[in-house]
Nucleic acid binder design. Structure first.
Lengths: 219, 219
DNA sequence: AGGTGTATGTCGCAT
DNA sequence: ATGCGACGTACACCT
């Protein structure tokens, strides 16, 4: 990791063209070769950058960074205030918890959490227009398509509606109804779902995780 | 801008929960208060971050950063290798050029590029549910709504469908059909569009630009 | 390598 | 504030 504080101007030509007038800025050059130019504000996103893989040509007063796609970043160096380098070694990386994948996993193992008596037919049921999160059967043997989101918005209801339209064309499945499940569901999404006769279920993640650990203890 | 190289472990509780085991890393603390923890790789995105506005409690061996939404970032400091600060002053910011707006501009001037004989009625035709990129008439005088994207996905087809549903309620326009135009259109989007009887056109941007420069030479 | 869906997306602009 | 669409989105996962 190389960390440089300097006065510079920068230009980018690639998917768009952009230019940064001269100012005091920070450059990060990571060991994978990527370069990022930061201002002292504006959240974590750099003003400009070039990810790996790339080729860096480093002159005294200018860096020219190009990548295989033909994009070009040009840093004009006016004055260097600090230029330090450190070896970091590999980062163990982060462990995440509580994303949509995990929700889907838990609900696939506990479909009855969505509705009493519901049983799983297929997880990630593939269609031409995308994968249906869960395909289930209810106590009457009726097919049920389940769309799972962490945050349930209108777009999720739209997505499930598309799946339902598609699935209901299949004579072997028809009729298919829908359940929209999320940790939180926006009021607008609830209204839209109701309008389309789609059930909504708000999931208590901690409760679901509790059921899972109970299963683990039992079996 | 404060730049710290240190051995640390980090935890985040908020929209998800995550944990970073101890390793050598870089912390950026910008003047707006935002904090980002970088590893020496993985493009420009930090491993963890907390944007402004936030409150930072800085102890000898631990930083605790919280924001009004109740998210919490905890940095456990084990060893500091470098800790430098610089004043940057305001950044003039960047100037951009050349995105979807330009594509719309070019197609507004060359609607025949979308379909032979097509003529423009209105660019950015405003409706209650949003602006229709182009409203045209075909050779039979039938109204045509055009949605333009750089990359055409399912969401774009959904958007156009909403516009068509809306426009077809207007007796002065009805019937209205749709054209979905983009530099690239995803196969799923094509399938969905076909299913809804919406035409799709993939635009060759360079060719279109060529026509434009031809126009400029002619007139 | 290319396509598709997710993201602590971020960011900007509208209401 | 909140919703919605664009982004040099980046990124993981899949064929």
């Amino acid at each position: 990791m190389r960390i440089i504080v300097l006065q510079c101007s920068v230009s980018y030509e690639g998917r768009l063209e952009a230019y940064l007038p001269s100012a005091k800025r920070l450059i990060l050059n990571k060991s994978d070769g990527c370069v990022a130019i930061h201002a002292d504000g504006g959240a974590y996103k750099p003003l400009m950058w070039m990810n790996a893989p790339n080729r860096i040509i480093e002159n005294l007063d200018e860096w020219v960074i190009t990548n295989p796609k033909g994009e070009k970043l040009r840093i004009k160096i006016e004055e260097i205030f600090s230029d330090i380098s450190y070896e970091f070694g590999d980062d163990p990386g982060l462990t995440k918890d509580g994303v949509e994948a995990h929700l889907q996993e838990l609900l696939a193992e506990n479909p009855q959490h969505l509705e009493s008596g519901l049983t799983l037919s297929k997880r990630e049921y593939f269609t031409e227009i995308g994968p249906v999160d869960l395909l289930c059967r209810d106590t009457n043997g009726i097919a049920v398509a389940v769309e799972i989101k962490r945050k349930g918005g209108i777009d999720g209801v739209e997505q499930l509606t598309r799946y339902l339209d598609y699935l209901n064309k299949d004579p072997k499945l028809r009729p298919v109804r829908g359940i929209f499940a999320a940790q939180q569901i926006a009021p607008q999404a609830k209204t839209l779902a109701k309008d389309r006769e789609i059930s909504t279920v708000e999931i208590d993640y901690d409760e679901l995780r509790g059921m899972e650990s109970l299963n683990l203890r039992l079996f």
